Amino acid sequence: SLTLTVRGEEAVRRWYKWAQAHNLEVEVETHGDEYVLHIK
């Protein structure tokens, strides 16, 4: 499992696509303009 902090929706989309390509689940938490992604 992997936890990432990114800024901006574009980065979130990029990681989301990456995770889907690897059959992984993604949980997204929003903290202001930062997003915490939990990839499992």
Rank of each mutant, 00 (worst) to 15 (best):
S1A: 11
S1Y: 14
S1W: 14
S1R: 11
S1H: 13
L2G: 04
L2A: 04
L2M: 10
T3I: 14
T3V: 12
T3N: 07
T3P: 03
T3G: 04
T3A: 05
L4G: 02
L4W: 03
L4F: 08
L4V: 15
L4T: 05
T5A: 07
T5P: 03
V6M: 03
V6A: 03
V6L: 04
V6Q: 02
V6H: 01
R7G: 05
R7C: 15
R7M: 10
R7A: 07
G8I: 03
G8H: 06
G8E: 05
G8Q: 03
E9L: 14
E9G: 06
E9Y: 09
E9V: 13
E9M: 15
E10C: 11
E10D: 11
A11V: 08
A11R: 06
A11N: 12
V12E: 02
V12S: 04
V12T: 03
V12D: 00
V12Y: 15
V12W: 05
R13G: 07
R13N: 13
R13Y: 08
R13M: 11
R13T: 09
R13L: 12
R14H: 09
R14M: 12
R14S: 08
R14G: 06
R14Q: 12
R14A: 12
R14K: 12
W15F: 09
W15R: 01
Y16K: 15
Y16H: 09
Y16L: 15
K17F: 08
K17H: 10
K17S: 10
K17M: 12
K17R: 11
W18M: 02
W18R: 01
W18A: 02
A19V: 05
A19W: 02
A19P: 00
A19K: 00
A19I: 07
Q20L: 13
Q20I: 12
Q20V: 12
Q20R: 11
Q20W: 09
Q20K: 14
A21L: 13
A21H: 09
A21W: 11
A21K: 11
H22G: 02
H22R: 08
N23W: 05
N23A: 07
N23E: 07
N23Q: 09
N23L: 07
L24C: 14
L24R: 05
L24V: 06
E25V: 14
E25N: 09
E25G: 05
V26L: 13
E27P: 00
E27M: 12
E27I: 15
E27F: 14
E27Q: 11
V28I: 13
V28R: 02
V28D: 01
V28F: 07
E29R: 09
E29S: 09
E29H: 08
E29V: 11
E29T: 12
E29Y: 11
E29C: 11
T30R: 15
T30E: 13
T30S: 12
T30L: 12
T30N: 13
T30H: 13
T30W: 09
H31K: 15
H31P: 02
H31M: 11
H31L: 11
H31S: 10
G32W: 03
G32P: 04
G32C: 06
G32D: 08
G32A: 05
D33P: 06
D33Y: 06
D33T: 07
E34R: 11
E34H: 14
E34Q: 11
E34G: 08
E34A: 10
Y35I: 07
Y35M: 05
Y35T: 06
Y35E: 02
Y35K: 03
Y35V: 06
Y35L: 06
V36C: 11
V36Y: 06
L37T: 00
L37H: 00
L37W: 01
L37M: 06
L37N: 00
L37A: 01
L37V: 09
L37K: 00
H38F: 08
H38N: 07
H38V: 11
H38P: 00
H38E: 04
I39E: 00
I39Q: 00
I39C: 13
I39H: 01
I39P: 00
I39Y: 02
I39R: 00
I39D: 00
K40D: 04
K40Y: 14
K40Q: 09
K40A: 07
K40N: 08
K40M: 10
